[in-house]
C-alpha cells in the first residue's frame, strides 16, 4: 500500500486514526467510570467495585454487557422516533470533540497524535460540544414523562448559561496564545502553563466545565433525589448506555481540554524534553502521551474529589451563580488579559 498516495493522506490515514481514537476513547471512558467508582469509594471510606476481576477491573465490561443485553423499553407515551435517535445526538458530539485534541507531540510528519490539525480548533470544540444539549433536550421531551421533561429543561438552561462564561474563559486563553489552534496553545505554554497567569479563567473554566458536563455539585438535570433520573429516567438498556457514555466522554473531553488549555498539555515546564530527545521522535511522543495522561487524570481526580465532597446546588442558585458571579468574573478577566496584551504590544 502506498502511504503517500493522496487518497491515503486525505482519507485513509484520518479514517484509521478515527477508528483507533474511537476505540481508545471508548476504552478510556469505560475506565473513567471504573476510576470514578473506585475513587469515590476511597473517599467514602469503602473500597468500591472489587468483585469482578482483580480490583474490579472487568467491571466496566460486565456493566457494558449487561446494558447491551437488557431489553430496550420504549414507553407508550414516548414519541418513538425521537426517543430512539436522541441518545445518538448526545453521544456523537461528545466523541467528535476529541478530533482536535493533541494528545502528544507528533512523531513524524504523518504520525501526529491528533486527527485534524484545524486552525480553528477551539471554535470547533466549543461549537460541537454545545450540540450535546440537543440529545438531552430531545430525549427528555420525547420520553413523554414529567421527570425527564424537567430534567431536560433544566439541562438546556444550565448548559446555555454556562456556555457563556466557559467561552469567555477560553477566549482569554486564545488571547494569551494568539491562536485558535490547540497545538499553538500548547506550544505557548512551554515555559509556564496558563494556569498561573490565568488563574481566574481557570477557576471559571473548572466551575463551568463541571456545570457543562452535568456533574456534582451541578448535576441538576439528573439530580436523582429530586428528578429520579432526570432526562434519562425512561431510558434503559443500550440507549441508556449511550447517555452514560456521552456523559463520561464529555468528562474525559473536558479533562483533556483543560489539560491542553491550562495545564500545558504534553509540555513539562522547564524541562524541554522534546529538544533534549530530538533524535528519537517516538520516545518523545510516548513521554508526551504519558505526561498528558497524568495531567488529565489529575484533573479527573479533582473532579471526583469535588463530587465526593459537596452537596448539590439548587436550580435557581445555579443560574444565579452562572450569570451573576461567573460571567462578570470571566469578563473582567478577559478585559485584564486584553489590557495587558495591549500594553505589552505597545
Amino acid at each position: 500500500m502506498n502511504w503517500n498516495s493522496p487518497f491515503m493522506l486525505t482519507v485513509g490515514l484520518p479514517l484509521l486514526k478515527i477508528v483507533i481514537l474511537l476505540g481508545v476513547v471508548a476504552f478510556c471512558v469505560a475506565y473513567t467510570v471504573w476510576l470514578e467508582r473506585r475513587l469515590l469509594g476511597f473517599f467514602q471510606s469503602r473500597v468500591g467495585p472489587n468483585r469482578v476481576g482483580p480490583a474490579g477491573l472487568i467491571q466496566p465490561i460486565a456493566d457494558g454487557l449487561k446494558l447491551i443485553l437488557k431489553e430496550d423499553i420504549i414507553p407508550t407515551n414516548a414519541r418513538p422516533f425521537l426517543f430512539r435517535i436522541a441518545p445518538i445526538f448526545a453521544v456523537v458530539p461528545a466523541f467528535a470533540g476529541f478530533a482536535i485534541v493533541a494528545f502528544a507531540p507528533p512523531a513524524g510528519p504523518r504520525a501526529s497524535f491528533l486527527i485534524s490539525d484545524a486552525n480553528i480548533g477551539i471554535l470547533y470544540l466549543l461549537a460541537i460540544t454545545s450540540l450535546g444539549v440537543f440529545g438531552i433536550v430531545l430525549g427528555g421531551w420525547a420520553s413523554g414523562s414529567k421527570y425527564p421533561l424537567f430534567g431536560s429543561l433544566r439541562s438546556a438552561s444550565q448548559m446555555l448559561s454556562y456556555e457563556v462564561p466557559l467561552t469567555f474563559s477560553v477566549l482569554s486563553v486564545i488571547l494569551m496564545a494568539g491562536s485558535f489552534r490547540l497545538d499553538d496553545i500548547i506550544q505557548a505554554q512551554g515555559k509556564l502553563p496558563f494556569l498561573v497567569p490565568l488563574i481566574l479563567a481557570f477557576g471559571v473554566y473548572v466551575i463551568s466545565a463541571v456545570a457543562e458536563t452535568n456533574r456534582a455539585p451541578f448535576d441538576l438535570p439528573e439530580a436523582e433525589s429530586e428528578l429520579v433520573g432526570g432526562f434519562h429516567t425512561e431510558y434503559s438498556g443500550m440507549r441508556f448506555a449511550f447517555y452514560f457514555l456521552a456523559e463520561y466522554a464529555n468528562v474525559v473531553l473536558v479533562c483533556c481540554v483543560a489539560t491542553s488549555l491550562f495545564l500545558g498539555g504534553y509540555k513539562i515546564p522547564f524541562l524541554p524534553y522534546e529538544t533534549l530527545l530530538a533524535g528519537n521522535p517516538w520516545l518523545v511522543s510516548l513521554i508526551g502521551l504519558a505526561v498528558f495522561a497524568v495531567k488529565a487524570v489529575a484533573f479527573l481526580y479533582f473532579y471526583i474529589w469535588i463530587r465526593a465532597t459537596f452537596p448539590r446546588y439548587r436550580y435557581d442558585q445555579l443560574l444565579k451563580i452562572g450569570w451573576k458571579v461567573l460571567l462578570p468574573i470571566s469578563l473582567l478577566n478577559l478585559l485584564l488579559v486584553a489590557g495587558i496584551k495591549l500594553a505589552m504590544l505597545r
Partner: peptide
C-alpha cells in the same frame, strides 16, 4: 438528608 441534597459522602460516614 445529606444524600437528598447531593452530599453523598456524609451518608457513608454516618453509616460507618
Amino acid at each position: 438528608h445529606a444524600l437528598d441534597l447531593g452530599a453523598m459522602t456524609v451518608l457513608f460516614y454516618a453509616l460507618r
